[in-house]
Design a protein around this nucleic acid. Structure first.
Lengths: 201, 201
DNA sequence: GCCCATCTGTCAGTCGCTGCCAAACTCCAT
DNA sequence: ATGGAGTTTGGCAGCGACTGACAGATGGGC
């Protein structure tokens, strides 16, 4: 497909999978480059496929959706959040657990610059923002049963649990929005704490 | 286009506009009927246009997007919320004002059944849910400057204001979700109060 | 009745996305 | 290494949402 790989060190899996992974990476990098260069909506699948050296059909087999080309990180985000919550000590409260999950999720990004770029792309592109919000909503629903046993007043019902989770995510979103507005100044988690403090008096 | 209107009482505007409005209503009713009958994604624009007696092109001239066929109510929702907030007494606090806005928005629905049906459609259809969330986000941003002078601790900054607005909407969403889960039992506003109480408790 | 403005339908085209089929490829057994 | 089995790939045709352009119909003002 692309250049022949001269090196042939032993790999964990078959040569096929390695090629596959390489192709996926190539597609992803091309897509991200074009998105940041000329915008998401202005970049067509055809162009990405052409520049990545694959057919449109193959591209859609790797990533089922155009949004998936940038949404992979969101998928990671969701997975990491739920996983972190699951692995938290049993005596930790709901708010505490959620904060830890956000902290873990934020540590995914390699650099401030990369995080800023990606956040801005999602924040400014309507369709991407919509997809993110959708995934976030699903994540909240998944978190619900995990958090119910951690709620401090035992009389708390499902509806209230939902409100708590929704609030945590809302404050996280507000924090990232403010962080973006300030061009990446300060720490998102600090902004999250400040926002939550304002809410909970 | 459709049947000739035999009645010709004096109207506020020209006959043209009246015809226009009638056609729009016809399209809207047809769309809503088909959506609830066979689902949103399973209903094509072509089908709506055919059954409403207009061309696809005309349909798109009336409603720029398929989502607009059901999103009109959301547009109303957003408008009413911001307008209510704007007309609130100057000494009312942010939380108070937001609650009043939600209450006003909920009074839009004619009946519990209709509200239930529409909420469920938006809640269960991914694309519609995404569009609703997008509009909600824009609404939050518009509300921000209106609420900043109403925040009780004067040292509250923009980031914290954003968190408060986001939390209010999050709790409202949680309330509607819980309301839907309970098949419309109880009052959404009560659920909202309970959720917020759990958050701010 | 006539002209102008507006609206409407038709047509063609773009873009995201999917099903289908034949060719190319990797892998394994012989 | 050779053949067969299972995957993967690319090209093609097609669907559905949506848009621009053009020609024709329609209402309003004279």
């Amino acid at each position: 497909m692309a250049q022949g790989t001269s090196g042939k060190e032993a790999a964990t899996s078959t040569l096929w999978d390695r090629t596959r992974q390489l192709a996926a990476q190539e597609i992803l990098q091309t897509a991200l480059r074009l998105f940041t260069q000329q915008g998401y909506d202005e970049t067509t699948i055809a162009q990405i496929a052409r520049e990545a050296g694959v057919s449109q059909r193959t591209l859609f087999r790797y990533f089922g959706t155009k949004e998936d080309l940038i949404g992979g990180s969101e998928e990671q985000f969701v997975t990491l959040v739920t996983e972190t919550v699951r692995n938290q000590p049993a005596d930790a409260g709901a708010w505490e657990v959620l904060r830890a999950a956000f902290e873990a999720a934020l540590s995914l990004h390699t650099s401030r610059e990369e995080a800023l770029e990606r956040f801005r792309l999602v924040h400014d592109t309507d369709s991407l923002r919509a997809t993110y919000l959708r995934k976030r909503a699903r994540c909240q629903e998944e978190l619900l049963p995990l958090l119910e046993p951690r709620l401090t007043p035992p009389g708390t019902d499902r509806g209230q649990a939902r409100a708590i989770v929704a609030t945590a995510f809302a404050c996280f979103d507000a924090a990232t929005a403010t962080w973006l507005e300030g061009k990446g100044q300060g720490d998102i988690l600090d902004l999250y704490d400040q926002g939550l403090a304002a809410v909970r008096g």
